[in-house]
Amino acid sequence: MMEKVRQILGVAAIESAWVRRQPLWIFQSLVFVIGLIMTLFAWGGEAALKNLMVAYLVIGGWSIGLNTIGQIIGWGRINLTYEFFVASPVTLPIYFAGVVVGIMPYLLIQVVPAFVIAAILNVNFSMFALLLPLSATSLLIGTFTSLSIILRLKNPTNISAITNPLLTFFTFLPPVYYPLTALPSMIRPIVIAIPTVSLMEVGRWSAGVPIGCDLTLSLTSFASWLILTIALVVKKLKWGLE
């Protein structure tokens, strides 16, 4: 067990080196997170802030999975880091866990403010028992969504050109930072098919924020995304013997 922990930490130290060498990216993310808190609180009050708390946990995980983890693994395949690890005692679960642990500083930038908001709003912390596993699930769906595309690119040299637009499309256009109830009721069941929307709806329900659609639909949507993206990734992502 301890050996596996060491292995995960070793991979994490290697794969997070870029984060440690670029502290300004962390600073940039922190400024964005704080800025959004102030903006939404000023315009939307406590309701907007509570929604943002959910978004930081749920969509934070999804974004990091989609953009950061997807990119690290995608680049690893191009620059041969992936092969280097395959031909070693590192297994796929250890590699994946190492990459996730390595990008924790980025995830914490969103998770910590979520806890701060919860403290300011005096909400019941027990809801985090549901929100944190949901955040982890979101991270997985984001990662698998990203990888299911990246691994099929014929010339995957500019991975961020794929993941950044995807992130913007899934995060800012649909009802993530604004409520699903802002949309006409007839199109809500359609919009719920978007993974970020269904994840947010489940998150809102967990935090006691009003939801705009039947919860079963949201659960079905994100479970379907999870199964679909896992199936797409498993078909392409092999740990050696390709």
């Binding site: 060491r6 290697i14 080196a17 870029w18 060498r21 092969e83 690890f85």
Partner: peptide
């Protein structure tokens, strides 16, 4: 054609890779 992680030092690169091996 494999290259080391450019964000790590030689000592750090060897050390963390050995730890990744267990």
């Amino acid at each position: 054609g494999f290259m080391m992680n450019l964000n790590l030092t030689p000592e750090g690169y060897i050390k963390w890779n050995l730890m990744a091996r267990g």
